[in-house]
Computed example of a mutant assay.
Amino acid sequence: MPDLTTAREELMAVAIGQLGELLDRMDTLAPNLDASRMELLITSTDLAKKVEAYSKRMDEITENAKLQTVKHIARRADEMARGTVETQTRAVEEAARMVFRNEVGPALQRVALPLQDVADLARKGARPWEGWLLHAATAVLASAISWGMAAWLWLR
């Protein structure tokens, strides 16, 4: 048997040879691993920047959505308030019409009739000399006729 007499020594030699190949492969793999690690760090940094930019953009979008929502809610609340005011105004006007028609109108009628009578009396009393003027005109006319007849009789 040659130098390597036992299977065990032969396996040890093969294992050492494979270990050498493995170490050679690891030596060639180390720069690739470093390059991959550097690319991974660069990608991680870029990703962090993009996530930060995305987060800022999402914050802007969220703020804009909040602002638009608040404006919409305010506009709808204003429209509803105006509609409510108009409805209440119409209801109050109708209630006022009903009150005047049913309660104030008849009371005014009861007060107005005697006042109209008083106004008529006041209009008549505003010119009391009209009645005396009529009596005076009648007296003057009767006197003139009497004088005229007396003169006519005397002259005859």
Rank of each mutant, 00 (worst) to 15 (best):
M1K: 04
D3I: 07
T5H: 01
T6E: 11
A7V: 10
E9R: 08
E9A: 14
E9S: 12
E10V: 14
M12E: 15
A13P: 00
A15I: 10
L22P: 01
L22W: 03
D24I: 02
D24M: 06
R25N: 09
T28R: 06
L29K: 08
P31W: 02
N32K: 11
L33K: 07
D34W: 01
A35D: 10
S36E: 12
R37E: 14
E39P: 00
L40M: 06
L40C: 04
T43Q: 03
T45C: 00
D46P: 00
L47G: 15
L47M: 12
K50T: 15
E52K: 03
E52N: 04
K56H: 08
M58Q: 09
M58E: 09
E60I: 05
I61E: 10
I61T: 10
I61W: 02
I61N: 03
T62L: 04
E63H: 02
N64W: 03
A65T: 13
L67M: 06
Q68M: 11
T69H: 07
T69M: 05
T69V: 01
H72D: 15
H72K: 14
A74C: 02
R75M: 05
A77T: 15
R82M: 06
T84Q: 06
T84Y: 02
E86D: 15
E86M: 11
T87A: 13
T87C: 07
Q88M: 13
Q88G: 09
Q88P: 00
T89W: 08
V92N: 06
E93H: 08
A96M: 11
V99E: 11
N102D: 14
N102Y: 05
V104D: 04
G105C: 06
P106E: 12
A107P: 00
A107C: 03
L108S: 01
V111D: 08
L113Q: 13
L115C: 04
L115F: 03
V118T: 10
V118K: 04
V118E: 05
V118R: 04
A119N: 10
A119D: 14
D120R: 10
L121W: 06
A122H: 13
K124S: 12
K124C: 10
G125H: 14
G125R: 13
A126S: 14
R127F: 13
P128V: 10
G131I: 09
G131Q: 14
W132H: 11
L134A: 15
L134G: 01
H135P: 00
A136Y: 03
A137D: 14
A137Y: 02
T138Q: 08
A139F: 04
V140F: 02
V140Y: 01
A142W: 01
S143P: 00
A144N: 05
A144W: 02
I145F: 01
I145T: 13
S146D: 09
G148T: 14
G148C: 08
G148Y: 07
A150I: 12
A150H: 09
W152H: 12
L153Y: 12
W154V: 06
L155G: 04
R156V: 12
